[in-house]
Design a binder for these strands. Structure first.
Length: 262
DNA sequence: ATGGTTGACGTTCAA
């Protein structure tokens, strides 16, 4: 069964419901995973997405912050959620397709500004969250599974505009990139985007604080699509829709796409 | 050395 999967940090699903609809009309992903919905579940405009064929949805939300949702044209059942690091925040939800394929949608904590857990509680929570991803997937190694989301870490040197200048910037510090790589390896996860696009600079996020984001191009690859090793061979077609970052009133993240033929 | 922008909420926090 072939399908197209996308992940997008939408930065308010209510403010940008029209952008979600535009993306769905233009690219027609079968499954769209959203992060930073910033909305209680009962205020997400699911009817807008149902009208476009996304008749199945699973979401977790809270007022104002965080929030994750999976919109799907394919039948999907709720497969539960994690509350890593004991934060009691809506940062993960999982769905299961009819063929048993499991889809994890994560929103990893951003971690604040100071990359030191002694001085910044949020950074410690981020490291704890990623460490729990490692212990979980190391303990029950994923099969027939896909993991996507805003992981808020750019692991490779070519996942940021300047490796050297970002070594002490949260999202690219060695303690973070090593923790994310450890979590990936613990589960045997294959980085699908980098399997398909192994060479060159690749970004999915550009700060709002740069007025000329496109020309300056000081991006980072924070959004990821991983596959368990048994199905990684069926993944392909990766792309990051950079032009979406240039839409009117955009999210600061661009959507990341891949296809699977399971 | 530190500002720059955005969103939700409510007169500030998080990203």
């Amino acid at each position: 069964m072939p399908f197209t999967l996308a992940t997008w940090n939408i930065n308010s699903v209510r403010l940008r419901a029209d952008l979600v609809a535009d993306l769905c009309r233009a690219e027609a992903p079968d499954i769209l995973c959203l992060q930073e919905c910033k909305s209680p579940v009962d205020k997400i405009p699911f009817e807008t997405f149902e009208a476009l064929g996304y008749t199945h949805s699973i979401a977790r939300g809270q007022k104002g912050y965080n929030g994750v949702a999976i919109l799907s044209k394919l039948p999907m059942e709720d497969a539960g959620h994690f509350d890593f690091a004991g934060l009691d925040q809506a940062r993960h939800v999982a769905g299961r397709l009819d063929d048993g394929t499991l889809i994890h949608n994560f929103y990893v904590p951003a971690g604040g500004d100071v990359p030191d857990r002694e001085r910044n509680v949020k950074f410690g929570q981020k490291l704890d969250f990623v460490e729990e991803m490692r212990t979980h997937f190391g303990g029950s190694r994923p099969e027939r599974s896909i993991l996507v989301g805003d992981l808020n870490i750019a692991p490779r040197e070519d996942d940021v505009w300047s490796h050297k200048q970002l070594l002490k910037v949260v999202s690219h510090t060695p303690v973070e990139t090593e923790a994310l790589t450890a979590a990936q390896e613990a589960g045997g996860w294959v980085d699908v985007t980098r399997k398909d696009i192994p060479e060159g600079q690749l970004y999915s996020w550009w700060s709002y604080r740069s007025p000329n984001w496109d020309a300056a191009d000081k991006g980072r690859r924070l959004d990821h699509i991983w596959a368990s090793p048994d199905i990684a061979g069926s993944a392909g077609g990766s792309r990051i829709l950079r032009h979406v970052r240039g839409w009117e009133k955009p999210s600061d993240h661009a959507p990341v796409f891949a296809t699977f033929d399971l």
